[in-house]
């Protein structure tokens, strides 16, 4: 079997890394040896007919998107649904397979009495680099007491939080828990906690922009493609729902590229960043610099 020529991307330095901060590895082949778990993942996440992905395929996808690294997010719904679609140990397993390309985020369910210990272990023993929470699925508001101790641990370890904000396609989700305005008090009371509102908290995009422009510790990612093509939807997001100038002038240090893959299309979304009419320096921030700052801390 022979193939036509293909262009490999050249290696890059840390400064020009392109990072996808929002990737769910639920269907990566190395963690899908058990058919029962794979079926549970399809049902719990509401993603079907996609099969499992060999790491070689993931790397091909990254190369075509121009991506250097991915944040892999664990998902723990042990109280909300009685299952853990992607455990912290599975994320750690994947990170160990490609430590130069994968950065692991822990998942815990805030209503789980063991959540604090799980998170301490994820940061302390497994070396995971952030926390992933889904208020709409796990049924908590960002300021609820069940989540406060988790934020304490994140601050103690200097680890950021990725919140699934706004609409979610997952079953049994309620968007109101992840409405951006619900995060304002968290941003105000914990200025040392960096957190991201995935998908700009769509459809409350202006609300997300309001919280972000007030609080530099609040980030948003681009992981939304609820209608139309990547070209059409992201163009609309960055030119109608948000003025391009808002991002280019005021929010440029707080927006990160995220795809919410495999829900949405990583390659086409990544390619759109260069076509939004933003300054080149802003695009560079969105592609990687902001993600590194989100991960490592504000200067």
């Amino acid at each position: 079997m022979r193939s036509g020529p293909s262009g490999m991307s050249a290696p890059c330095s840390v400064n020009d890394m392109f990072i996808d901060v929002h990737v769910h590895p639920a269907f990566y082949e190395p963690i899908n040896g058990d058919g029962c778990r794979e079926r549970m993942r399809h049902e719990t996440l509401g993603i079907h007919k996609n099969g499992t992905a060999k790491l070689e395929h993931i790397f091909n996808q990254m190369r075509l998107a121009g991506l250097d690294a991915l944040f892999l997010l664990a998902q723990d719904y042990c109280v909300a649904e009685g299952v853990v679609p992607v455990t912290n140990d599975e994320v750690k397993q994947l990170v160990d397979l490609a430590p130069d390309r994968f950065m692991g985020f822990a998942g815990v369910d805030p209503h789980d009495p063991g959540a604090n210990d799980k998170l301490e272990r994820a940061f302390g023993d497994l070396g995971l680099q952030g926390l992933n929470l889904h208020p709409g699925r796990q049924r908590f508001y960002p300021m609820d007491s069940c989540a406060q101790r988790l934020y304490d641990i994140c601050e103690a370890y200097n680890r950021p939080v990725m919140f699934h904000a706004g609409m979610s396609w997952e079953p049994n989700t309620l968007s109101r828990y992840g409405r951006p305005v619900e995060f304002e008090e968290l941003a105000a009371t914990r200025p040392g906690l960096r957190f991201c509102l995935s998908g700009f908290g769509w459809p409350w995009v202006e609300e997300a922009a309001m919280v972000m422009v007030k609080y530099p510790n609040v980030y948003a990612d681009t992981g939304i493609l609820h209608f139309d093509s990547a070209r059409e939807f992201l163009k609309r997001l960055f030119t109608h729902e948000l003025a391009a100038t808002w991002v280019d002038r005021s929010l440029r240090h707080q927006v990160m590229f995220g795809s919410d893959n495999p829900r949405f299309e990583q390659i086409r979304m990544a390619r759109m960043l260069d076509q939004l009419g933003l300054r080149e320096s802003t695009v560079e921030l969105i592609k990687g610099s902001n993600a590194l700052e989100f991960l490592n801390g504000l200067e």
Partner: peptide, 19 residues
């Protein structure tokens, strides 16, 4: 690639975008 295709939408039975 940039034609306004009707198939460019989320397919609910897949739970993902048909791009």
């Amino acid at each position: 690639e940039d034609h306004p295709y009707a198939h460019a939408r989320v397919l609910k039975d897949y739970g993902s975008t048909a791009g």
